[in-house]
């Protein structure tokens, strides 16, 4: 007799954030976050608006570097290297850690070129047609677009566009994929398809997903981190990590009062 259970054994970590503080100028936006992200699992970041979950997500591929006066203290270790070491090239980081954005943002190019773009700029030498097909298949989009690869990516529906963006991220052959509310602009059916996709993708990638939708977190995530926000005495708002555990613990038997209130819908 055999049945599968979710293991609770400590797994290999991909990212390990250690006392990460994020500043915009002098203003502290995220205080002392320490969190381990596990390999081949889906980790959800939940919490009310302004709690800094997207900000933290964008720290993992150094996308926040684009924001002026952004400044990070602490360490984010990725496979034994600190991502914020001055020696680290953010471009190299982003080649290994893919990103899917809140709003589907395909390039104004053909479907084929959307997928091939990332591989081309990274000097991919193999068979491009094969890579495009493989990536679109992995994103569960191939059957819908195989006859119109030369058409613009913008001609697709919202849900298809988002899966195209996932295919584009996969084509670079990343190690981890960051998703910033990937379903918030999609209808329920497209959302379901993207969630199924996330389930399949975690076999090969480590995924972090920011979501406002708690059902979504409970459906897709193995681990869940709950963030909250508190006003600072200078009139700003500062996010912090309240609780991080296995998803069923967060949703059924959270240790913190605030988590309990948030997941049962009493605030946020």
């Amino acid at each position: 007799m055999s049945f599968s259970i979710t293991t609770t054994e400590p797994q290999e970590t991909v990212f390990s954030a250690n006392d990460v503080k994020v500043y915009y100028g002098k203003f502290l936006a995220l205080k002392g976050i320490s969190i381990d992200i596990f390999k081949n699992s889906v980790t959800a970041f939940i919490g009310p608006s302004g709690c800094g979950k997207s900000t933290l997500l964008r720290c993992f591929n150094r996308l926040n570097d684009l924001i002026e006066n952004f400044h990070l203290e602490g360490k984010i270790v990725y496979h034994h290297q600190n991502l914020y070491d001055p020696q680290v090239d953010p471009v190299e980081v982003r080649r290994r850690i893919g990103m899917v954005f809140q709003k589907p943002n395909p390039f104004p190019k053909s479907i084929y070129d959307n997928v091939a773009f990332g591989a081309r700029i990274n000097g991919y030498k193999g068979d491009m047609d094969e890579l495009v097909e493989k990536s679109l298949r992995s994103a569960a989009l191939w059957d819908e677009v195989k006859d119109k690869l030369k058409e613009s990516g913008l001609a697709l529906s919202g849900g298809q566009q988002q899966r195209l963006c996932i295919a584009r991220a996969i084509a670079v052959q990343p190690d981890a994929i960051l998703m910033d509310e990937p379903c918030s602009a999609l209808d329920p059916i497209s959302t379901l398809r993207v969630e199924e996709l996330i389930h399949q993708l975690k076999e090969r990638y480590s995924i972090i997903i920011v979501t406002h939708n708690m059902q979504q977190a409970s459906r897709v995530a193995d681990m869940t981190a709950f963030f909250n926000v508190e006003p600072t005495d200078k009139g700003g708002r500062m996010g912090y990590l309240v609780e991080y555990d296995r998803t069923e613990v967060i949703f059924q038997t959270p240790k913190q009062q605030a988590t309990q209130e948030y997941v049962s819908g009493r605030f946020g």
Binding site: P106, R168, V172
Partner: peptide
């Protein structure tokens, strides 16, 4: 978002401008 998408794929500044921003 276009620039962020390109940068998120590991494009350099030149690749972002030449490959995505200028064509658009």
């Amino acid at each position: 978002e276009m620039r962020q998408a390109a940068v998120g794929l590991g494009a350099t500044k030149f690749q972002t401008v030449w490959g995505v921003v200028l064509p658009a």
